[in-house]
């Protein structure tokens, strides 16, 4: 499909058109601790952000989500579905996050279709932004998820100095910019994008070879590194794991959740709620009569890392995209890339 360009100062025209028709969410702060929230005008939008605390999975799999409400009347149940039909645009997502959404798509549309997820996904439009300033924790390049994007977007923006290059990735994308007078991108503009891509790749300092990650898991189930991480002094300059769950909660590909019912004081009306869960918490592996599949902290952190290496049940659907959020958020300074490297070295 054709590519266009827009002057940076004209971005307002583009955004204003979107705001007329959709709810728009985008990065609302610069820096690493940004967040994707509602944008009401161009002044709210900070496309120069580096990363967000919580990944955009919150738009498809909210931390807390009421699935349906129920009522018991004369012995019969009455069920009311909660349907969210809001159409929205996610503006300025980085390639790592878009790739993570593609993984979630696979997971939630497998054998069991999750209509709550799919409904939200159907109503979303993704305007991605190639990452020209990867942060110090990013290793998306190694995980084939960035810093530039090649699939999964409806519209893709690339910062080429005074302009943005606009590429269309789907019919949805084509439709929403219809009616706007945009200049066709020149060969020179596309060349500029290539250059930016090379520059961005060079800025990424954390490098891993993703091919040996699942193998690492297979060969190191009983490695002493897990005891170091769980109980002793940590690994490669980190403190031991706190099992606080922050890593998995901010992770764009961690989809594990818990489902429970709540009732009101009449004991007749209630709702079924889905809540984001974390394998780092003791209760996650708990079963009836007090059994627990992962009682020890070392087993929990090992499980999470293997899952991110693509070696757990989720396989590629839950494996890492290299966004670096877990490294940034860990109070113990645990760095998954350093743990992987330590495992490789100590083999």
């Amino acid at each position: 499909m054709a590519s266009y360009i827009i002057d940076k100062k004209d971005l307002k025209i583009l955004l204003d058109k979107f705001l007329k028709e959709f709810k728009v969410y985008g990065p609302i702060k610069p820096g690493l601790d940004s967040s994707v929230d509602e944008i009401k005008s161009i002044d709210d939008l900070h496309l120069e952000y580096k990363s967000t605390i919580i990944s955009p999975k919150k738009f498809f799999l909210p931390p807390k989500d009421t699935l349906f409400e129920f009522k018991i009347q004369k012995g019969n149940y009455e069920i009311k579905e909660i349907v969210n039909d809001e159409k929205f645009i996610l503006f300025g997502l980085h390639p790592c996050d878009v790739n993570a959404i593609l993984k979630l798509d696979e997971f939630f549309s497998g054998k069991f279709k999750d209509k709550y997820y799919q409904n939200r996904r159907k109503n979303s439009i993704i305007i991605a932004l190639n990452c020209t300033q990867p942060g110090e924790n990013s290793f998306c390049k190694s995980m084939n998820a960035g810093p530039f994007l090649y699939k999964g977007y409806d519209i893709l923006l690339t910062d080429i100095d005074t302009k943005y290059l606009i590429e269309i990735g789907s019919d949805k994308g084509k439709k929403i910019i219809q009616g706007l007078k945009l200049n066709i991108a020149s060969k020179n503009d596309l060349l500029k994008k290539e250059k930016k891509c090379k520059l961005a790749n060079k800025k990424i300092k954390k490098i891993l070879d993703p091919n040996w990650l699942p193998k690492l898991a297979e060969e190191n189930l009983d490695h002493e590194i897990w005891i170091d991480l769980g109980e002793r002094g940590g690994v490669a300059g980190s403190f031991p794991c706190l099992s606080c769950g922050s890593c998995s909660l901010v992770c764009p590909t961690c989809y594990c959740y818990d489902i429970y019912d709540t009732v009101d004081l009449s004991l007749k009306n209630g709702s079924r709620v889905r809540e984001l869960d974390s394998c780092q918490l003791l209760e996650y592996g708990q079963v009836a009569l007090g059994g627990n599949f992962r009682k020890d902290r070392k087993d929990r952190i090992r499980h999470w890392m293997f899952c991110k290496f693509g070696a757990a049940a989720g396989s590629k659907n839950s494996s890492c995209v290299g966004c670096g959020r877990c490294i940034r958020v860990c109070p113990s300074k645990i760095d998954i890339t350093k743990v992987a490297k330590s495992l490789w070295r100590k083999k």
Binding site: C244, G245, L281, E283, R328, V329, C330, P331, K333
Partner: peptide, 17 residues
């Protein structure tokens, strides 16, 4: 579960890191 879980649900930046 720890307070961190609810803190992440709120979307807060970590006060420690």
């Amino acid at each position: 579960h720890p307070v961190c879980v609810e803190c992440k649900f709120q979307g807060n930046a970590c006060l420690i890191t």
